[in-house]
C-alpha cells in the first residue's frame, strides 16, 4: 500500500494493508481495499460498513475509470478515506477532489505549491459532484 503524500483528512491514516477487492469481500476482518481500474466498485457497496480505506489505482493518468469509482462510493454514502494511487499529475487533483478523493499517493512527487495553485484556480463549478461545491446555477438562482 502506498503511503499518502497528500491527505485532506483529520483522522489518523489507516495502517492496514489494502487487499484486492476479491480478497476484501472474502476476508471479513479486512478494512482497507484496493480497487483497480476495471473493477466494478459497486461490488463493494454491501460491505461499506467495514471499509476504512479505499485505494484506487491509476495505472496511467489518462485512464479515468477511477473518477467514477470514487463517485460511486461517495454516492453510496461512504465517508471514509479514498486514496488515489499511481500516475497522478497535479492537473488531475482538482477533478479528483471533486469526485471524492481525499488522499493521494502519486508515483512522482507533486509540489505543494502546484497542488495549492491547482486547487484554488477555479472559483466556481458548473455542476454538482461529490465535494459539495455549489454549482453556478444555484448561485444564480439562490
Amino acid at each position: 500500500m502506498a503511503e499518502a503524500a497528500l491527505r485532506f483528512r483529520n483522522d489518523d491514516p489507516v495502517e492496514e494493508p489494502a487487499v484486492t477487492l476479491d480478497a476484501f469481500i472474502e476476508q471479513t476482518s479486512a478494512s482497507a481495499v484496493r480497487i483497480e481500474a476495471g473493477d466494478d466498485p459497486r461490488r463493494l457497496i454491501p460491505h461499506l460498513g467495514r471499509v476504512k480505506l479505499v485505494e484506487v489505482g491509476f495505472p496511467r493518468f489518462r485512464d479515468g475509470r477511477g473518477f467514477s469509482t470514487a463517485r460511486v462510493l461517495r454516492e453510496a454514502g461512504y465517508d471514509g478515506e479514498i486514496r488515489a494511487e499511481g500516475d497522478i499529475l497535479v492537473d488531475l487533483i482538482f477533478f479528483m477532489r471533486r469526485c471524492g478523493f481525499d488522499s493521494f499517493a502519486p508515483q512522482a512527487p507533486l509540489g505543494r505549491a502546484d497542488v495549492d495553485a491547482a486547487l484554488s484556480r477555479y472559483d466556481y463549478v458548473y455542476q454538482h459532484a461529490a465535494d459539495g461545491a455549489v454549482p453556478i446555477w444555484k448561485l444564480r438562482h439562490g
Binding site: D63, G64, F67, L92, R98, C99, Y122, Y126, Q127
Partner: peptide, 14 residues
C-alpha cells in the same frame, strides 16, 4: 455546454 464543461468525472473519458 455548461453541465459538461470541466465535468470532474468525465474529463478523462476513454
Amino acid at each position: 455546454r455548461q453541465a459538461t464543461t470541466f465535468h470532474p468525472e468525465f474529463s478523462y473519458l476513454p
